[in-house]
Design a protein around this nucleic acid. Structure first.
Length: 429
DNA sequence: TCTGGGGTCCTAGGACCC
DNA sequence: TCTGGGGTCCTAGGACCC
């Protein structure tokens, strides 16, 4: 059966998550920051109205924030991840085909019915999420994903639609596209916008009707696909069974610059441990490991960035194996005399556990089975008592300059017994 | 003083092979 | 004197997304 796409998008997701446990913040300006309290990553509508831009470094808007008493939160990914799962679960209760596109967005496919029925159904979906999870969402419906994105923008912006807008079979589709700036089209970023503008293409409608060979040449097949999608020709299908990832990255900027190898090692070991945990959680193994270190893009006097890759003999998800390789890379990368700001690990060559090719020399690793059991035990303990309960090669040094700075973090309301919100009965004797 | 983290896809160019 | 062509694979870098 022919289907249409619906995009369900949580409104100002991180802010909505924070407000869920602090309802007194409804109607007040709120922002959420990136790791290390670096940049603005989410804004309430009130904060948007104050002109605080998305992605702006925090220090640049500190004066606006102080002046208007904007509430500021460090990011609390444990909370957002948990609430995201709950939203997705509600969607799956109603629809079998759900593609979780990001932490706050999902595509679903709906049967082609009358527009009125679709809108009514979407409204019900929206109401269920609000009731069961408490997060407001907007829903855009159209015949392609790119158009569903645009429909969603309308649903979010125009209050009269109550959070649902249907573009499929809508006779005013070209009017909507004419009102949509081309840089707001999904897949058209800064660079493409420059090229398109130079050719007189400013709106989604301009792009829809633009010369195909020119688009193909300037924006590659990706841009050509976007143009087709604007024409209602679906090129991007629903992926409701995510394949195993091609790469897994764990990296963090440091809370304070690091100059010595000792602290870099500790940071690398920590990040590699997290990456190993991710592998095991997904039931996959990796055979390629890349370590990078950098002074960051803003240190103009003495900047240094480098990375090194090691290909392992066999795919593995064992943390000690990964650490050994990682420290080997780090040793050759490290140069004294720099103020390092960030390091990270990237794992690639990822295969499902058990799918790897039999290795001629496996008799050389009799410890492999014990290793697996150790990892299972470690993951179980850390998942029960918190990620840092058991760690590799970690010192008890009080000064860990690489640790993240997060001074405005809300409690882990839903994922930590110690931080559960407490309902206080008042007025009872 | 202070600027995130985690992904995907595409292309061009070099190495290498026959 | 005269020095090909076609294919594959890998990597780096760019662009984009949330």
């Amino acid at each position: 059966m022919k289907k249409v796409f619906a995009l369900v998008d949580c409104n100002n997701f991180y802010v909505s998550c924070e407000r869920l446990f602090r309802p007194e913040l409804n109607g007040k300006p709120v922002v959420v920051l990136t790791n290390n309290d670096g940049c603005i990553v989410a804004r309430s509508n009130e904060a948007k109205a104050l002109g605080i831009p998305m992605g702006e470094p925090f220090f640049k808007v500190k004066h606006v924030i102080a002046k208007h008493k904007v509430h500021v939160f460090s990011s609390n990914y444990a909370l957002y991840g948990d609430l995201s799962h709950r939203v997705m679960d509600v969607l799956r209760q109603m629809e079998p085909d759900v593609e979780v596109y990001s932490i706050d967005e999902a595509f679903i496919s709906l049967p082609v019915t009358k527009v009125w029925d679709r809108v009514k159904y979407a409204a019900e979906l929206r109401e269920r999420v609000r009731k069961q999870v408490g997060i407001p969402v907007s829903i855009g419906i159209a015949t392609t994903k790119t158009l569903a994105k645009i429909a969603n923008r309308v649903a979010k912006k125009e209050e009269q639609f109550n959070g649902v807008f249907d573009l499929a079979g809508n006779s005013q589709i070209d009017q909507v596209l004419a009102m949509t700036e081309v840089n707001d089209v999904w897949g058209i970023g800064r660079r493409s916008t420059e090229k398109l503008n130079s050719r007189g293409i400013y709106t989604a409608l301009d792009l829809k009707t633009a010369d195909e060979t020119w688009i193909r040449k300037q924006l590659t097949v990706v841009g050509a696909r976007t143009a087709l999608e604007l024409n209602g020709i679906s090129c991007i299908s629903l992926e409701n069974a995510p394949p195993c990832p091609k790469s897994i990255i764990t990296s963090r900027s440091f809370g304070h610059p690091v100059t010595d190898l000792y602290n870099l090692r500790e940071a690398v070991i920590n990040f590699v441990s997290i990456a190993g945990e991710k592998l095991r959680k997904l039931g996959v193994e990796a055979d390629t490991l890349n370590i990078f270190i950098t002074t960051g893009p803003f240190d103009e006097q003495a900047s240094y960035s480098n990375n090194q890759t090691i290909t392992l003999h066999q795919p593995t998800s064992s943390t000690p194996d990964l650490i050994t390789a990682a420290l080997q890379c780090l040793k050759s990368l490290y140069k004294p005399g720099y103020r390092y700001r960030k390091t990270g690990v990237m794992l690639a060559g990822i295969v499902k556990q058990g799918y790897r090719q039999q290795d001629l020399f496996s008799f050389l690793r009799p410890a492999e089975k014990e290793d697996k059991q150790l990892m299972t035990a470690l993951d179980r303990i850390n998942s029960k008592w918190g990620r840092s309960t058991i760690q590799y090669g970690m010192t008890t040094a009080e000064d860990k300059p690489w640790l993240m700075q997060q001074t405005r973090k809300s409690p882990a309301y839903t994922t930590n017994w110690q931080e559960l919100p407490v309902a206080k009965a008042t007025g009872l004797s």
